[in-house]
Nucleic acid binder design. Sequence first.
DNA 1: CAGTATCCGATGCGATACTG
DNA 2: CAGTATCGCATCGGATACTG
Lengths: 235, 235
Amino acid sequence: MRKQTEPGNYNQFCPVAMAAEIVCSKWTPLVLRELLAGSARFNDLRRGVPKMSPTLLSKRLKELEQAGVISAHKKTPGGVAEYKLTPAGEDLRDTIMSLGIWGQRWIESSLSLKNLDPSLLMWDMRRNIVPTLIPNRKCSVQFTYPELPANRNTWWLVIDGRDVDLCSVDPGFDVDLYVSSTLRSMTAVWMGHTTLKAEIAAGQVQLTGDKAIARSIHTWLGLSPFATEKTRLAS
Amino acid sequence: MRKQTEPGNYNQFCPVAMAAEIVCSKWTPLVLRELLAGSARFNDLRRGVPKMSPTLLSKRLKELEQAGVISAHKKTPGGVAEYKLTPAGEDLRDTIMSLGIWGQRWIESSLSLKNLDPSLLMWDMRRNIVPTLIPNRKCSVQFTYPELPANRNTWWLVIDGRDVDLCSVDPGFDVDLYVSSTLRSMTAVWMGHTTLKAEIAAGQVQLTGDKAIARSIHTWLGLSPFATEKTRLAS
DNA sequence: CAGTATCCGATGCGATACTG
DNA sequence: CAGTATCGCATCGGATACTG
């Protein structure tokens, strides 16, 4: 017997219902966020949604392709798929941004800061580094979160021209700038809940190494796309 | 033992993730749509999401209240609750609209029109009637969908001043205008995929009764909030 | 690296019935 | 009318291991 109501289907003609079936299934807004941010390959997407199982990510990508939101393009047969947003997918940018802006405005920062994740933070930060604003064309910045277990508390950003690489194991380059911080403070800075300057003054963030790179960090260390949106919560 | 990952929780600090937890659980976008459209009472909300079980609606309303999106207000103790959007909830209007606009732009109308529901259509239409544009201050309009089973194929809109009532059983008033249509055509008109004029010309919609009311129907019969948004699908 | 296959458990949700 | 209580199933999705 055929099922009457397919799961996840609202069976309403209203465009909100039709769109929600595609956009609002579990994890999908986050996958879309990652696609909109520019990730195109499977494991890049995974880094943006690390708690999602690969099985489910695979399923969601197929669904989004089926819905016409993305297209999976293989350069060579049997090669690696690149997931690109179609025009319809690109047109979801405002919708997803609207969701994030609302979250930034109305959700207590203390709630967000319960969900700390250094690798996710570093992955997000990597994407917004502005290499052209760093005094050196090539340089290496080491981030350390001393309170975390030793095997997961250090990351390196390796900048070379326009490229920014994130490493979780020491790539071996000379480090130009050392950043040491509590994870909570660095996350709060990234989200725009506080400023680097304030956290440095409070002793929550320390910079050591190249003075020029350190001095300009507030220019080249990009923040979250939502960082400029002010909270509307009564404080 | 406490569960590590609460269901529906992404545990990501990103505002998109935090917002999606609140806004994108199952049925929630539709409940919000109904609240934004002005429904405030439990059974009015149910009419907008008829396929949702009352248990789940009740649960969602509590969650939305907990999240600060709505407030449940009882005029008298033990009386009827009115669910009102808070400022945070009202601020979701653009987000939900954005979702609907995207759906209207990018989802095949043939897909939406697989999900016909006369009571939902009438409920939506009722809300957008513009009484002041009807020649008579008081009048009654009967809608019939002849292809449907006899016990569910007729509705009455009873207009009295600023009030518009929807009845699924004959309220007994003299009918000023009779509208007879296929359900598909009337839904397509409501959604803006075609026009009343075209459907009348094609014999899909018939109007009989008061000439003045019939002539002005395209003014007082409001359409879906998304009807003016043009499709972006290649046709 | 880029996914897929399989398994299984939790839980979300629907159906129904009930109460103030 | 406005919900709540209970039940049981389906399904969703997590974990793990595997393959080209």
